[in-house]
């Protein structure tokens, strides 16, 4: 019998370590791929190499968080990619102009939060399927991005690009901040309520969780994260591109599913999703070093999504028989 060997003060840590143990297999796979990568490309174990590697990972990690957040709450979003584009476009058009660098950052954050919240209100209060609402939303957001900046261009201050995407691991530190922010959120009643509402909305409602408000908050935070990923991409490329975010929609779903997040809500963990994004990022890099053309990653993504859903489903079906 498992007794309460832990002291009551260690409850939080015990819950966390148990979640980590559940992901042991995933951690091993991620470490194996990382080692393979180091072996293929030893340059990664330098400040510069590590910085570049984490800069490639960072936007994917952010959009994966944006996606996983909603999937854990029982939703999904197809407007992640367009939001990344919009974030990049707003950054590239506002930073050089009236708003200045900080004003630009604030504008990106505000737009991301706002669009996310509006989507959330439509989904939660009108009870419409998130997948179709965000599909329609993705077209509208793409259109807005194209209106603001019809073709790649705009301006990002050089120092800002150097800060985020230079030879220092600033991106990695920002990722740690984002993860810390998530952990903080998940330690609030609202965060736990969001998780509970994903799997059992009726039960959560009866337990006093304001299910609709939590859903709107989830969409808003998701929008914020996606737009900030766009800000980073703009800094990385030094300009804005109204279509640059498109691959992120499927990428974010692939990474979340790879990390064990289920389509039906309440299944999986954010740390799993982040590991999934790291795994996907390393896979893409490894494929690149093995000489696959860049487009091969699209092929891989399609296979990964279907595989990540199919393998558990098939094993479950076989077990039933």
């Amino acid at each position: 019998m498992t007794t309460r060997s832990i002291s009551s003060s260690g409850l939080y840590r015990a819950i966390q370590s148990r979640r980590n143990r559940g992901l042991g297999g995933l951690y091993i796979v991620v470490v194996a791929f990382l080692l393979l990568y180091v072996w293929l490309f030893p340059g990664i174990v330098s400040i510069g190499g590590f910085s570049k590697f984490t800069q490639n990972w960072f936007p994917l990690a952010l959009v994966t968080m944006a996606q996983a957040l909603l999937m854990l709450n029982g939703g999904i979003t197809l407007s992640v990619g367009p939001l990344v584009s919009l974030g990049a476009v707003i950054a590239a058009t506002s930073m050089g102009g009236f708003a200045g660098t900080w004003g630009g950052i604030a504008a990106v954050a505000a737009i991301g939060l706002g669009i996310g919240a509006i989507t959330g209100i439509i989904v939660a209060h009108l009870r419409l399927p998130a997948i179709i609402v965000t599909l329609a939303g993705s077209f509208i957001i793409t259109g807005i991005a194209l209106l603001i900046l019809p073709r790649p261009g705009g301006f990002i201050p050089g120092w800002f690009s150097d800060l985020l995407a230079g030879n220092t691991p600033v991106a990695f530190c920002l990722l740690l901040v984002a993860i810390a922010g998530w952990k903080l959120f998940m330690a609030t009643p609202a965060g736990l309520g969001m998780y509970a509402a994903g799997e059992n909305p009726v039960g959560a409602f009866r337990s006093g969780v304001s299910v609709e408000r939590v859903k709107v908050a989830a969409f808003a935070i998701s929008g914020l994260l996606a737009a900030l990923a766009g800000l980073f991409v703009a800094a990385q490329t030094g300009s804005g591109d109204p279509l640059i975010g498109n691959p992120f929609t499927l990428n974010s779903i692939a990474a979340a599913v790879l990390g064990g997040v289920g389509f039906l809500g309440g299944k999986g963990t954010m740390r799993g999703a982040i590991c999934g994004s790291l795994l996907l990022s390393v896979m893409i890099n490894v494929m690149f070093f093995l000489g696959f053309p860049p487009v091969a990653q699209y092929v891989a993504q399609g296979l990964i999504i279907v595989g990540a859903v199919a393998i558990p489903e098939l094993t479950a079906q076989r077990r039933k028989k």
Binding site: S8, Y195, A204, S207
Partner: peptide, 28 residues
């Protein structure tokens, strides 16, 4: 049942009435 299966026993029992400290759930 009104439970969430991936949350711990403690987090389920307290859902909707968590003790708080500085806005966070007071796990202790």
């Amino acid at each position: 049942l009104s439970l969430a299966s991936e949350l711990s026993i403690a987090e389920n029992v307290g859902l909707g009435a968590y003790p708080r400290r500085f806005g966070l759930v007071d796990y202790k």
